[in-house]
Nucleic acid binder design. Structure first.
Lengths: 191, 191
DNA sequence: CAAGACATGTAAGGGGTTACATGATTTC
DNA sequence: GAAATCATGTAACCCCTTACATGTCTTG
């Protein structure tokens, strides 16, 4: 499963240009599947070549022309097969946690700053979610969410909440433990 | 930050062979940073070329020879710099969540099975942790954990617990919602 | 007047995964 | 007798990330 599959997936919702797909990616599954233009545009070109999507050139006034992609029956078939056969890999790569793992090699103040920054990143992401996805009272006309969207959104929210509270609850302990120890192998790191 | 940095990092704990490093990776940060032999061996060779580690050939009886790597002062300097300057990226790529997002395109029974499998994966990983890392009463002589190791281990445990309970609590709702809807665009997927 | 939104692409490079290649010893 | 552990590496491939290239219109 790669960017191609995800493009096919979002095109089941409605026809879109590459640019719109990118925005959709950011709103819908930024948490668990990122993709930039550099993956999306080539993916769409490939899908078109294979007949899994069609392209329509749409001229616009006061802005650049765009290419609107539409999924074909063959595309739907391909998508369904890929979704059914995929063995779902779930992998995290966190340099933040690597830094925490090796925190005894860093100045404690720096570790504290890293944790604070991570907390604010998490909270910032969370508020973007709430804005973008189910603006409960703000946008009553937006398309209602599918069950899967509610499920993954809820999952993301819960994980963010859990991570934030863990970081807040354990930051102090970690810093105290780091200060108690002889600071491993740092000659003089910060000032 | 890449496999090279992580190798340098684990070598601050003690000298190791590539094979041992791989095992260490699996015990210590499988959750948030995976690496296979195909990344580790070339990384070690590169580090040796750059003088950041030394290599010692150790002959063994009844098993293949091994190369024991040791970090050099230059290696420690390099590591510290990389850790200090890194801007800590934290990214998840989950095909499981992609599948949940598009669950309206799948047969509900299949979605149920996917969730069950994910739960058992999570629980399996959790029990491996408990075994491997702080076998409280079982291995009293093992090296005591560093603060960072406790912190990241606790983080992993908490995330696994949170994810498991979310999946258990929301599985039923998702499946009920999926069955209530006309099954989107599936002609006849699983009889 | 600068920054950002709109819009599409290419090319190089980076890094990780997988498969291949080899081989002894131990355990089930 | 098969499978797992110990042990090291290479090569191909895949995919993503980043930078480059271009240009208009709107908003602050």
């Amino acid at each position: 499963m790669d960017t191609r599959t995800l493009c096919l997936g979002v095109l089941t919702e409605r026809a879109m240009s590459g640019y719109e797909i990118k925005k959709h990616f950011e709103e819908a599954f930024r948490h668990f599947f990122a993709a930039g233009f550099g993956s999306i545009y080539p993916a769409l070109a490939e899908l078109a070549r294979e007949g899994l999507v069609t392209v329509e050139n749409v001229e616009q006034v006061n802005r650049p022309d765009k290419k609107v992609y539409r999924i074909t029956p063959a595309g739907r078939g391909q998508l369904q097969q890929e979704l059914m056969l995929a063995d779902p890999v779930h992998r995290l790569r966190s340099e933040f946690l690597v830094l925490m793992y090796f925190s005894h090699l860093l100045p404690p103040e720096h570790v504290g700053r890293l944790i604070d920054r991570r907390i604010s990143e998490l909270e910032h992401g969370l508020s973007r979610d709430l804005d973008a996805c189910d603006g409960g009272a703000g946008t009553p006309d937006a398309a209602p969410l599918t069950p899967g969207q509610r499920f993954t959104l809820g999952y993301g929210r819960m994980m963010v909440t859990a991570a934030t509270s863990y970081l807040r609850r354990h930051k102090g302990t970690l810093l105290r433990e780091l200060e108690a120890e002889p600071a491993a192998s740092l000659p003089r790191a910060a000032e």
